[in-house]
Design a protein around this nucleic acid. Sequence first.
DNA 1: CTACATGCAAATTATTTGCACTTTT
DNA 2: AAAAGTGCAAATAATTTGCATGTAG
Lengths: 144, 144
Amino acid sequence: MNVNEAMELLKEKGYKHTGKREDMLHFFEKEKRYLSAKDVLECLQSEYPGMSFDTIYRNLSLFAELNILEETELEGEKRFRFSCSTTQHHHHLICLECGKTKHINSCPMDSIRQQFPDFQVTGHKFEIYGKCQDCNEITKVDSN
Amino acid sequence: MNVNEAMELLKEKGYKHTGKREDMLHFFEKEKRYLSAKDVLECLQSEYPGMSFDTIYRNLSLFAELNILEETELEGEKRFRFSCSTTQHHHHLICLECGKTKHINSCPMDSIRQQFPDFQVTGHKFEIYGKCQDCNEITKVDSN
DNA sequence: CTACATGCAAATTATTTGCACTTTT
DNA sequence: AAAAGTGCAAATAATTTGCATGTAG
């Protein structure tokens, strides 16, 4: 998924092309990590001073519904990231300092489904939290 | 972990023995599943008509801090369940209809840590959502 | 009688919604 | 124009906090 494909999808579905939408998507494409509504607002407010949370929230929900963004909930906040659904199903290591993510292609669900055939699985969440290599190095430097 | 052990732990740490705390713990022990603050309030209000959310929330946080309860976040709400930490590390299948849970002893983290030695893991979440066998059967009956 | 526990009311935080106005198409 | 997008202000909803009072040890 990239910004052009996303805008194309929006057009197909009858949603309009606005600068705010495009800029939101560009921000997500550039960051490649989970962002909160606040992150997005802060980024877009330089460009659009009157920009409000409502618009951010409405568009985030819309994008998530269309699978343009992946959604998760982290520390009591919804977070979104540009969808990597063109690649195979996967999970992430998430750095709690900088938000950077790393893909994990292996998914433990296959074996789980076999183990519990009576449980009808509708979804799952597998996320690993911690500190990425870069953030770890910064800490080391700081404490010297 | 059981209610007596939990009350013992509270006493050790200098927290007081109150009927509300004990009843909260009994409720968790009986239910063996993830419960929201609201669930707990509804249960305790019959016994303690004046019972307020504050007390529930304060005690839930306390119990979680002392590892008497396990905490997770599900559909925008914090949920707690009686801790099974005496048994080995594990995860759950969670029925979104009735809240019932099933243990999974296997944890995918061991292999993940090996795969990403540069990422300092501080936590992880692995939860499987769906419909348990009982709830599935109820649906079948309903639709007849 | 002292520290912890609780209720009340008010504050916080993230998110959603109704309504009037403004853009896209 | 018509449909969709947006800002504003107000409403929710879950959770937290300050303060005065109550209660267990």
